[in-house]
């Protein structure tokens, strides 16, 4: 291994590599790091959008205030609750349905395509659709449950804390389980058939085959899927904003952040505070991502 030795042909490689990579780095820096840096910079000031000239440097005090803000802490808990339930159920259902779709059956292609429909509908549209389905007068869910005599009076699903969050979580599950199925199905199809044949010859039953072959083989895929979904769930905004606007104790940190940056931060000096909240949300999500990468032993290279 004498890779260090530079023959004339390879000496220029790093320079070429750098030349090719610089545009990519520039683009990523421009669209990802610059706004992030700008937000972080804004978070160090007490300022409003309307009077940017009146801003005062306050250092990190916005961050300190954030963790004394009971509304933020409550919303953080709401967000975590939402993420745990929705991602947890989505993963389980994703694995089960992917296992089913991985078998040979008639119209498999058709079913696989149909499963994707909820995921293909824009979230705002499907949230609005579900809002109507949950309606207490004309909503199909109440009509259905009433006709089956499961309930005596229509339920106002989105009006009360006991039902509003589960209702929102259900919509998220309905919408993103297909994404889980898709990823896990791809993982399943990479497992060589020979492994199962060998296991069968050794006399392993279906349960053993799942835990000894299938699960270890799709674990990295599940890990990646979990990262995507958790990051998505932790910054959930559209479903909540369309369905309840945060009423009935369903407010998530992103919905609160929007209120702080726009309505409050437009006139009152809360724009910096809102920016601090954005940066904090980013950090919380990063912690989750690192945690997953470590525990799932995912190799990102």
């Amino acid at each position: 291994m004498h890779t260090k030795r530079m023959d004339p042909l390879h000496r220029t490689d790093p320079i070429y590599a750098l030349a090719f990579i610089i545009p990519t780095l520039l683009v990523i820096g421009f669209i990802a790091f610059w706004p992030l840096g700008q937000t972080f910079y804004n978070s160090l000031f007490k300022s409003s959008l309307m009077y940017p000239q009146n801003r005062i440097f306050v250092g990190f005090s916005n961050y300190g205030k954030l963790f004394q803000d009971s509304r933020f802490l409550n919303d953080l808990w709401n967000t975590i609750r939402f993420s745990l339930w929705s991602v947890g159920i989505e993963t389980l259902m994703g694995i089960l349905i992917a296992l089913m779709l991985n078998r040979e059956f008639k119209f498999r292609g058709l079913v696989r395509a149909a499963v994707l429909i909820p995921w293909a509908i824009p979230t705002v549209v499907s949230s609005q659709m579900w809002r109507w389905m949950y309606n207490d007068n004309y909503g199909i869910i109440n009509t259905f449950l009433l006709s089956l005599h499961v309930i005596k009076n229509p339920v106002v699903w989105l009006g009360f804390p006991a039902t509003a969050m589960p209702a929102i979580i259900s919509v998220d599950i309905w919408k993103t389980t297909p994404f889980m199925i898709l990823l896990i199905l791809a993982g399943l199809q990479m497992i060589p058939k020979e492994l199962y044949e060998a296991a069968r010859i050794d006399g392993a039953n279906a349960w053993q085959r799942f835990w000894s072959i299938t699960f270890p083989m799709i674990r990295p895929t599940i890990g990646i899927a979990l990262i995507f979904r958790t990051l998505d769930a932790m910054r959930v905004f559209d479903i909540v904003y369309v369905m309840t606007k945060g009423a009935a104790n369903t407010e998530t940190i992103s919905v609160y952040n929007q209120w702080t940056l726009f309505t409050k931060g437009f006139i009152s000096p809360f724009f910096g505070y809102g920016s601090a909240m954005s940066v904090t949300i980013f950090l919380i999500i990063s912690i989750f991502a690192i945690f997953y990468v470590k525990t799932m032993k995912i190799r990102l290279d």
């Binding site: 309606n135 207490d136 007068n137 229509p154 106002v156 989105l158 009006g159 009423a247």
Partner: peptide, 21 residues
């Protein structure tokens, strides 16, 4: 008033009233 008023805006109330409900 139905418990649902806690989720109604103008148009939801109008739909109910206009429907004779």
């Amino acid at each position: 008033s139905p418990v649902g008023v806690t989720t109604y805006m103008e148009e939801e109330t109008r739909h109910i009233f206009q429907n004779g409900d």
